[in-house]
């Protein structure tokens, strides 16, 4: 029992360190373009989240109804709604309210909207 737990922790630790180092070095070495890098490190973070959820937090391994898993999934849903929603709304507001000087606005419109 405790040996299995030990293996679980070691696995979690080693893979977390690995994922952290990979994320760090792709950014420091500028392995790809900025856009691709952003998605890469975000993906690596989600991967590490899953690793730690399984190996450190032992999610979904409880007896009976999986209330922990259920609440976790609902929390993730709410977090996604609030974060993505806020970013979408705020970006949209910024765009519509044109939070910039008239000159900047002219340049922006020329570059991004072709007017």
């Amino acid at each position: 029992m405790s040996n299995r737990k030990l293996i679980s922790y070691v696995t979690g630790f080693v893979s977390s360190v690995g994922l952290t180092l990979v994320a760090y070095y792709v950014v420091v070495d500028r392995a790809f373009g900025v856009g691709a890098l952003t998605y890469t490190v975000a993906g690596l973070a989600v991967l590490q989240l899953i690793v730690q959820l399984i190996f450190f937090l032992h999610i979904g391994q409880e007896k009976g109804t999986h209330w922990k898993l259920v609440t976790f999934i609902f929390a993730v849903l709410v977090i996604l709604i609030v974060v993505v929603g806020s970013l979408w709304i705020m970006h949209n507001l910024d765009y519509n309210m044109m939070n910039m000087s008239p000159d900047q606005q002219k340049i922006y419109m020329h570059n991004n909207e072709g007017i």
Binding site: G85, I89, N92, L93, N96, M97
Partner: peptide, 13 residues
């Protein structure tokens, strides 16, 4: 967002 429809969001939002 329906509490602040009038505060500058675009038609899509």
């Amino acid at each position: 967002l329906h509490h602040f429809f009038t505060m500058g969001a675009g038609a899509d939002v």
